[in-house]
C-alpha cells in the first residue's frame, strides 16, 4: 500500500466517524483532533478502524506520531513495511 492510498483510507475513516466534516477541512499538517474538533472517543474509533483495515495497532505512547494526516499516513506506511 502506498502512502497516498493510506491517506485516502484515513480520510475515509475520519468521514465514517464524523460524517459532518467536509473533505476540504482535512489538511495534511493540521492537528486532527484540534482542527476538526475530533474528541478522544472519535480519535480512538479512527485508530480502531485503521487497525481493522491494516492490522497495525498504534500504542498510546505513539499518539504524538499520528497527530496529523501526513504523520499518521507515514506511521502506518512504515509499520506496514516492517510487518
Amino acid at each position: 500500500m502506498t502512502k497516498d492510498e493510506i491517506k485516502i483510507m484515513i480520510i475515509e475513516q475520519i468521514l465514517e466517524v464524523a460524517p459532518d466534516i467536509g473533505v476540504d477541512e482535512i489538511t495534511p499538517d493540521g492537528n486532527l483532533q484540534r482542527s476538526l474538533e475530533i474528541d478522544s472517543f472519535d480519535f480512538l474509533k479512527i485508530l480502531t478502524s485503521m487497525h481493522e483495515k491494516t492490522g497495525v495497532e498504534v500504542p498510546e505512547d505513539d499518539y504524538a506520531k499520528v497527530a496529523t494526516l501526513e504523520s499518521m499516513a507515514g506511521y502506518f506506511a512504515e509499520h506496514l513495511l516492517n510487518k
Binding site: S40, F41, L44, L47, T48, H51, E57, V58, P59, E60, D61
Partner: peptide, 17 residues
C-alpha cells in the same frame, strides 16, 4: 490507565473520560 491500556487491544482501551 497507561499501564492498563498497554496490555490491552486497541478496542478494549479505556479513555480518561
Amino acid at each position: 490507565l497507561k499501564e492498563l491500556n498497554r496490555e490491552r487491544n486497541i478496542n478494549e482501551r479505556i479513555l480518561p473520560v
